[in-house]
Design a protein around this nucleic acid. Structure first.
Lengths: 347, 347
DNA sequence: GTGAAAGCGCTAACAG
DNA sequence: CTGTTAGCGCTTTCAC
């Protein structure tokens, strides 16, 4: 009926709980014969330690928390599912389970939900996604002394993080557009203060400046990392009347939204406007035209996040700052600007 | 430093643990004054019960497990992230946390990972996604007597489930194609034995049969619910030489893969071939042309799954079988068949 | 109304 | 090498 306990095994073998516990945990002090008998019986009975009891005794839960962004009815970014899957895989492989937090929006409710999950008595460490510039969740984690790693960058050098090389990737992408002759290149950013968004914008800015191109407020718009956000942002740019010859969106789903807005405005991609995204979600390859994007090693980000966290939890070494290379992947959504269009930009 | 315990509060108030515990849990036997003092102190100290200790004592973890499908480097279906978010929301709202299982593939490893998570000492109940016809995970859950609900349908009437009306939705979609004059309608199914895939195929079959249209093996292909699966499946159909005038894919991501295969073959959507998907992921609206799809109430599926599970966990009532209505949403990826093409079908 | 005590299943000193 | 004894922090009889 109920699962067998250590005591059950001890009783049957006329041993003490302690010995059984030691035998099972491979303590070198127990006799080989005893160990074998215990192991065998445990196996036959299908014994498996009660995780809760173990957690209470050891003060370790073997569980890591993952905070994925979740704004109601808006976010469904494949990037996170893939990240989550890879992280879950790696966690399991190391004997950890994944605990999930899905804050509803950005309000105080989110913080409450977060602090509820980020309880050191519940999880051993945490992966935080979509950090903001001065994220209160980070100060919270530090206050309760819970090991954590953020997916993104953190200004505080004490904070471990893992990220794709956002700035370099964005810069590569925009450099490529420029090399094709584009000059009026729009940028659709993510939510303000979101570090990934900021870093990608910085790459855009660097590329533009290096080429001596002006950064015009009319061809910039803030999205929110969702399709509809990308759609509205592109719409706003178009409505401003000064249509760009290319647009760099700070993530793939916004790029898809932007492509739709362009189509609706009767503009062809890439003939009239080239579009580039960021992330490398697998879907990007399947839309029409296939979306050029900066490919992040999503799986590796997930795996490494867990590995870094495990390092931090074991207390060895200092904070890790890991920046994985990303790769710009040209696809049919980009092409040279229309003749004459490139001239417009320089004014 | 460390979180305050019940004992700490008891000591400060010169009470016993029991009384404090009772006061906090609203036991009617404690004096009003005592209750107030306890509540106040607990509030100031930021006391919050240790979930692990509570779980050990009550044998309830207030945690529900969620098994999302995860085949390495293949799956990134936005459907699941949205489902997961909604389920997580509803769980939190009811005082439950979400535990995640991400089985790696279909092999024995998946079952091991699953049974590791599906431990009644770890979670109070579980949501199982992508059930197969004779899913061994289901028998496992029944054996360990863990309450659960499946996202999909289960043949066993004792098993609770929640699902969109797959058959009706698929039928509506295919009926619509037929009403436009399509006769050669291909079908790209999901993994064999996957219940959702089977039910959707059944809707396709019903629509075809009712219209007196033949179901040709040449215009059917098995995908695996991934983009690339949809792509290969469409490719196989095209290569068979007998190109359909419309194709019904059993989920949206396969539909996107199929659209790409069609483009690569020089076939226009919907001019040459109409395409319909299933799920209603938000991305479907943003591709070109916007993908007609059978819209599932994803959020509601997630919420209701949790509600049903909570019902089951509290032991009240029998198994719940919930089928939510879905709605076919025509979009520009479907259109009338080319003149003459519809005739070919009836042969 | 409140307290004392036992116990959830496990680990971890401390003895022998 | 193995057993005994304490807890981990909470709930829950059973007394008073």
């Amino acid at each position: 009926m109920s699962s067998p306990t250590l005591q059950d095994i001890a009783d049957m073998l006329k041993l003490s709980k302690s010995t059984v516990s030691r035998a099972l945990s491979g303590d070198p002090r127990v006799a080989e014969g005893t160990r074998a008998r215990v192991a065998s019986l445990a196996g036959h009975m299908g014994y498996t330690p009660n995780p809760t009891a173990r957690a209470l005794a050891t003060r370790r839960t073997n569980t890591i928390g993952l905070a994925v962004p979740w704004a109601p009815r808006s976010l469904s970014d494949p990037f996170y599912l893939e990240f989550l899957g890879a992280a879950g895989d790696e966690a399991m492989r190391n004997g950890y389970s994944l605990f999930l937090s899905t804050p509803d929006g950005d309000g105080p409710g989110a913080v409450r939900a977060h602090s509820e999950l980020a309880d050191p008595r519940r999880i051993d460490g945490m992966i935080l996604t979509e950090p903001r510039a001065n994220d209160e969740r980070i100060s919270f984690l530090r206050r309760v002394e819970l090991p954590f790693v953020v997916l993104g960058v953190a200004s505080d050098p004490e904070v471990s993080y893992i990220t794709g090389d956002n700035t370099a990737g964005a810069r590569d992408a925009v450099d490529y557009l420029i090399s094709l002759g584009h000059a009026r290149i729009a940028c659709i950013t993510g939510p303000p203060d979101q570090t990934a968004s900021d870093a990608r914008f910085e790459g855009y800015r660097l590329a533009m400046c290096s080429a001596g191109l002006p950064i015009d407020r009319n061809i910039m718009a803030a999205g929110d990392f969702t399709q509809s956000g990308g759609h509205s942002a592109m719409r706003a740019i178009i409505d401003s009347g000064w249509v760009p010859s290319a647009v760099f969106a700070c993530n793939d789903v916004m790029a898809l939204g932007a492509m739709r807005a362009l189509r609706e405005a009767g503009l062809a991609v890439p003939a009239d406007v080239s579009v580039v995204g960021f992330d490398g979600i697998s879907m990007a390859e399947y839309v029409d035209p296939p979306l050029a994007t900066v490919k992040q090693p999503i799986q590796e980000l997930g795996r490494t996040a867990v590995q870094i966290l495990i390092g931090r939890m074991s207390g060895e070494g200092g904070p890790a700052h890991c920046v994985l290379p990303v790769e710009f992947q040209p696809r049919d959504s980009v092409g040279p600007p229309r003749i004459g269009a490139s001239a417009t930009g320089r004014g």
